[in-house]
């Protein structure tokens, strides 16, 4: 057998908090779950919020802390979007797991081991409505011996009958402060010195690390947004088209561009409310088209064209 490899986990996994108390910035859920660790009572849970805010981390941590390594496998079922969770799986695999009876509460090896199992449905917003509906019965029938944890980005994608049976927790986006303190913690652990060169490497790296830090990188430089807006104000279609071509060639994500253009327009003092309204409506439509997979160049050009017309006095 090959020798065990050195841990080559990327930092984002290596520094995933293992205990509920180490989850930063989500005080409410941490408080409730800390209580669960003492009393072992736990409702069905629904965690929702933007990517990289600790939802999966929290669910895995509480499950591990409740059962410990020995019982974990038999007591916890984790299913995520990489598993098939169609209606068939709900009717068979999930139901079978939910139905298994478990012994009464008994502390084992220092773990509370409550008398129920946990089913974690991560990325639950990718489950079809049919599959979710099929879950209702299972949830009701076996609620004595099974707790469900639903995790998703968009709470609106979880059908009401499921959502209403859960205690809901919204995970807040990380603040910059928390992120940078987390990054310097990791640097310390890794023995990295934050000298200038290190810092530039780090700012390159950290974006992939503390997941939420990504938003920094995704930002389109303000000059680029201003140049596009200026071209719109200039009123010349061809020049504005050139600017749009430039945005595309530079590879800036158009969805991000739209949201920054929107901010710039809403904040502008020299644009009338009615003009702002016309432009905003188009930005919204284009954003939806992008979600549908429409072409970035054409959508941005369409927005720019409307903006030019909205801003040009007739």
């Amino acid at each position: 057998m090959a020798p065990l490899l050195q841990s080559s986990q990327p930092w984002v996994e290596k520094y995933r908090p293992k205990q509920v108390k180490d989850v930063a910035h989500q005080d409410e859920v941490v408080r409730v779950l800390t209580n669960t660790l003492e009393t072992t009572s736990c409702p069905h849970m629904l965690f929702y919020g933007p990517p990289g805010t600790g939802k999966t981390t929290t669910a895995l941590a509480i499950a591990h802390q409740l059962y410990g390594p020995e019982l974990y496998k038999s007591r916890v079922l984790e299913l995520n979007a990489s598993d098939d969770r169609g209606i068939n799986v709900v009717r068979t695999k999930i139901k079978d797991f939910a139905a298994v009876a478990v012994g009464s509460a008994q502390r084992k090896g220092g773990y509370p081991c409550p008398p129920y199992k946990i089913i974690i449905l991560d990325e639950a917003d990718s489950m079809t409505e049919d599959a979710q509906n099929a879950l209702r019965r299972t949830m009701e029938t076996y609620s004595k011996v099974t707790r469900f944890f639903f995790i998703c980005n968009y709470v609106s994608r979880i059908i009401e009958p499921l959502a209403s049976r859960c205690a809901k927790f919204r995970f807040k986006p990380m603040s910059e402060e928390i992120m940078s303190s987390r990054i310097s913690y990791i640097c310390k652990e890794e023995g990295l010195n934050l000298d200038e060169e290190g810092l530039s490497t780090l700012s390159f790296i950290s974006q992939g690390d503390l997941r939420r830090a990504i938003t920094y990188l995704q930002v389109v430089p303000a000059e680029v947004v201003q140049a596009l807006l200026a071209a719109c104000k200039g009123g010349n279609f061809d020049l504005a088209n050139k600017e749009v071509n430039n945005v595309i060639a530079e590879g800036y994500p158009v969805s991000q561009m739209l949201s920054q253009l929107f901010d710039a327009i809403v904040e502008a003092d020299d644009i009338l409310d009615e003009q702002k309204a016309r432009i905003s409506k188009k930005v919204g439509e284009a954003d939806k088209c992008l979600v549908d997979g429409a072409d970035e160049y054409l959508q941005l050009l369409d927005v720019v064209s409307i903006t030019i017309r909205a801003l040009t006095p007739v």
Binding site: P50, G52, L217, G251, V254, E296
Partner: peptide
């Protein structure tokens, strides 16, 4: 080519490297 079409959840799991023309 178009990062707008990649969901935020995926993007946030990666170090994003923009390669301009």
């Amino acid at each position: 080519n178009s990062s707008s079409r990649v969901t935020e959840a995926i993007r946030s799991r990666c170090l994003n490297v923009r390669i301009n023309a």
